[in-house]
Design a protein around this nucleic acid. Structure first.
Lengths: 144, 144
DNA sequence: TTACGACTTCAAGTCAACTTGAGGTCAAGG
DNA sequence: CCTTGACCTCAAGTTGACTTGAAGTCGTAA
């Protein structure tokens, strides 16, 4: 399997063929050539896809991921960006912990209404203060 | 300000008026009545919005959030569901922590290329194995 | 050599969560 | 009383990340 075709890449990476075409279209991956109409990929595409998957799972947009690669196709990771993203994940984790604790508490709380429970109210206060933001919002560009 | 109008609620909650109408449409909040055409809200709507914001920030869909309220508008006491959600969040948190550590490491790693760094490669391997999922997917229902 | 099925392209559809726009209503200040 | 501007409704548009469908091409097994 020197040069896997799209089905092989899909099978081994778990990324659907339609997504692979989509990614190629977006410049995230490149096919090494064609046999007839059919794409052939370099084996290195698996690493590339793993990196894309990792980045996506870390909250990077495809746009941002595309900027992680130089035009020549090599990885060009900006340490500053990585740190920023790690910080963002930290904030997300804190958020999720708060929510988890809130749920956990709500599940056992005997207060007549959760809204009357001090623990729950503390969480809500944090949310109301805007400490807490929707996921992805920090990474998203302001439009307009 | 016994019964704030939509502008007041928007101002004090930080949630845009268009979103408040949208939420009402989706049954996530309810207006207490109208003055002419204009909605008036109970002050309790702020708490409700805080809860919605918190849940959204934790990766819950509006659909799921809607199910967190009983038809009467109170927080539902389905302890089983709450616990399940909490467990789900725990898994997500673990995932994000791993990711954050990986990013943190990559940001300071001296390896000539991240692809040559053992720590990074370990993460990539995990990503390739499908251990890692896109954000939100943990809380989201599988379609199809 | 022919049939088949796996690939191809390109446009359009989907989904969540909103936002925007057109056209309408109406309470309050001048 | 009349204007004004903030509110209203409802439909359609937006964004990101894909998926689906129709129509076409072509490598390979029989």
């Amino acid at each position: 399997m020197k040069f896997p075709d799209i089905a092989e890449v899909a099978r081994r990476s778990g990324v659907p063929a339609s997504t692979l075409r989509f990614y190629e279209d977006k410049g995230l991956i490149m096919s090494a050539g064609r046999r007839g109409l059919r794409r052939l990929f370099e084996p290195a595409v698996f690493e590339r896809l793993a990196l894309i998957t990792l980045a996506r799972a870390s909250g990077f947009t495809l746009e941002e991921i595309a900027r992680m690669f130089s035009p020549d196709g090599r990885v060009r990771i900006d340490r500053q960006m990585l740190s920023a993203k790690a910080d963002e994940l930290d904030r997300t984790i804190r958020r999720l912990r708060a929510m988890r604790d809130g749920l956990r508490h709500a599940a056992v709380c005997r207060a007549p209404s959760h809204l009357e429970c001090p623990t729950f109210r503390r969480l809500l206060a944090a949310a109301a203060k805007g400490v807490i933001r929707a996921p992805g919002s920090a990474a998203r560009k302001r439009r307009r």
